[in-house]
Design a protein around this nucleic acid. Structure first.
Length: 247
DNA sequence: AGTAAGAAGTCCTTTACATCA
DNA sequence: GATGATGTAAAGGACTTCTTA
């Protein structure tokens, strides 16, 4: 338990009138003495536990260090200022690091988005060509049906029987699950899926954000994880890759 | 209870000195 | 030795909080 500290009359006077002249402008010859290492060490150790000193502790510490209480008070004041500016510097560095990190992430996502847009444009072109090819085939009965001799004959997954949508065709679009097959069945006759694609293209290919109902806010959200991207590629883009590969 | 004055403390800025390259 | 840069003890002013009359 700490004993009650009562400043002596001398100390009280010293507190009121420090040895060092307060008006430095009128007395420029004052000697400024740096504190000793031992004094600094003790001051630092106390500052670690409390950045502000109670008057009583200040007097005790001043006595212990052989300094004026005012000198101790000023040291703590300056120390607080130095500590604060260091804190600000640290905070700045942390914020800057976070900002740089976000910026580079943003740039890489921008590049990724650009490459996805390019892919979508390519796919759109391919679908357009495919659609034109089908129109040509449907309109020419002399062609013999298989399409093998047409300019689009290289599309091997084309319908085997004229006018008959086949699962093979749909698999060509990467629709592999039963549910998806059912969905396609419900869309009606062959080729309609391409019309559906057209709807997407007309609206969303110009605006990739809406492609397949994906919104940029979701896609480029931080929470859009790698596995979600993989999922996106697997279920929405890989089917088109199948077209590329097969055709 | 509301208020003005003064004391005491803090923060911020500036000054002056010490030290070092 | 002179000089500029840097660190720091200290001064001074503005402001806040608390006490007291």
């Amino acid at each position: 338990m700490e004993t009650e500290y009562h400043p002596t009359v001398d100390e009280a006077i010293a507190e009121q009138a420090p040895q060092i002249p307060r008006n430095k402008k009128k007395n420029k010859l004052k000697k400024k003495r740096r504190f000793s290492d031992e004094q600094i060490r003790l001051l630092e150790s106390i500052f670690e536990s409390e950045t502000k000193l109670e008057p009583r502790k200040k007097m005790q510490l001043a006595r212990k260090l052989g300094l004026q209480p005012r000198q101790v008070a000023i040291w703590f004041q300056n120390k607080r200022a130095r500590w604060k500016s260091k804190q600000i510097e640290q905070d700045y560095n942390t914020l800057k690091a976070n900002y740089d990190n976000l910026e580079s992430r943003f740039e890489s996502l921008k590049k990724e988005k650009q490459s996805l847009i390019l892919q979508i444009q390519k796919l759109s072109q391919l679908l357009e060509e495919h659609r034109k090819g089908r129109k040509g085939l449907d309109g020419s009965s002399t062609d013999g049906g298989g399409g093998s001799g047409s300019e689009y004959g290289e599309i091997k997954c084309e319908t085997e029987a004229e006018g008959q949508p086949s699962f093979q065709h749909k698999e060509c679009l990467g629709l592999q699950t039963e549910n998806e097959r059912d969905d396609v069945k419900q869309t009606g006759q062959g080729g309609e899926e391409f019309l559906i694609m057209d709807e997407y293209r007309n609206d969303s290919l110009a605006s990739p954000d809406k492609f397949y109902g994906l919104h940029s806010a979701d896609m480029f959200d931080h929470s859009y994880t790698s596995s979600q991207w993989l999922n996106f590629w697997t279920w929405h883009l890989l089917p088109f890759n199948n077209i590329f590969n097969i055709c």
